[in-house]
């Protein structure tokens, strides 16, 4: 399962990096989103992948590591805030530069 998880994360990262390097703003935002998924999963996996051991006391015999989960929970929410900021920055750029090219270049459109 760990191998599968690793491959899946690798593909997610690769897709995210590829999108990050695009020239238009929207794919870049999507790339950031994908990378943040990968990073969140990576951090989460530092507590190891175990099934049926939710860190809620009294509900199961064993308990997974709650600490990475707590860290990732806030990371997800902050990730949203960051995405929102980037999106709004892009909109502002669109408004000022009339272009959705990442370097602000006017396209031939």
């Amino acid at each position: 399962m760990e191998a599968l998880f690793a491959i899946s994360l690798g593909m997610l990262t690769a897709s995210g990096v590829y999108l990050l390097l695009r020239a238009r703003i929207f794919p870049v935002v999507l790339g950031l989103t994908l990378i943040s998924y990968a990073v969140n999963l990576f951090l989460f996996a530092m507590g190891r992948l175990r099934t049926g051991v939710a860190p809620v006391l009294g509900k199961s015999a064993g308990h997974g590591d709650p600490l990475p989960q707590a860290l990732v929970l806030t990371a997800i929410v902050i990730g949203f805030a960051m995405t929102a900021f980037v999106v709004v920055l892009a909109l502002r750029g669109l408004g000022e530069l009339r272009s959705d090219q990442v370097d602000g270049k006017r396209s031939e459109r």
């Binding site: 690793a6 491959i7 994360l9 690798g10 593909m11 997610l12 990262t13 690769a14 897709s15 990096v17 590829y18 390097l21 990968a38 990576f42």
Partner: peptide
């Protein structure tokens, strides 16, 4: 770059 990053992360 994407492939290298992906492979590195997976490893």
């Amino acid at each position: 770059l994407a492939a290298a990053s992906g492979i590195l992360v997976a490893l």
